[in-house]
Amino acid sequence: MKRISLIWLLLPAVLLLAAFIVMPTFDLIRASIFDPDFTFKHFQRLVERGVYIDVMWRTVRVSLIVAVICTIVGYPVAMFINLQPKKRQVALLFLILIPMWMSVLIRTFAWIVVLGREGLINDLMIGLGMTDGPVQMLYTSGTVITAMVQIMLPIQIITCYSAMTEIDLDLMRAARVLGARRWQALTRVYLPLSYDGTLTGLVIVFMMSMGFFITPALLGGRQDMMIANLIEFQVQHLNWSFAAAIGIVLLVLTVSMILLLRWTGRFAFRRLLNVGR
């Protein structure tokens, strides 16, 4: 196609991204270092106060925990779907895709109904005589992670599954025919071939977890505040420049952690399988 018409086709998308993604990003950078004159005071404040360091470190830690749990828990689910007959795979995928597209707000609310003081679990436990009064489950870190894993899991499963559909299952059969045990065929054939997609899933879940806002705010206590909550808090208190500085740190942290995860992931893979030397 002619170059001119290509540019016309791209124009609406370019304008949209330029106005609502690229320009605001530059605005954010500017707001974080000019107040009104050039200054690094917002970044300084961020690294000098222990509270803020805590929030940042917690965000990275929680996101990493969620990503790792999703990977371990999701991998067998994706594998199970991939090993089913084609027709059945489609039906099973629906069970994963429908919750994936459900609003995060509603999925978080659902956890309040399940785990609240008058919720299902407490009701069951009291009914069974396992406890005398309601157990406090909301506003704890464990609940935040349980819910975040549930919200992110479909994404990990789908990413993993897409990678697995590329695997030629005849290779597994060949391995079995040649005398490999089931777990050997799994770890020597299936796992290496699905490794890259699994790592991609882990990175995506980590990245999305870093920006989580709704779930820690509704299910966590003060001790569970993540970077996005801190940003919202600062905006409500009209500290826009400081909020902008936190936003930039969030983006930089996310990108550098993604690079680190990709790099260590590849490295671990090579060491694990002794390949690529």
Binding site: M23, L28, F213
Partner: peptide, 16 residues
């Protein structure tokens, strides 16, 4: 935009 946290976009658009 998929890789950028919504909170970041929200803040940027808000300042804009």
């Amino acid at each position: 935009p998929i890789v950028i946290p919504h909170i970041f976009i929200a803040l940027g658009v808000f300042i804009l």
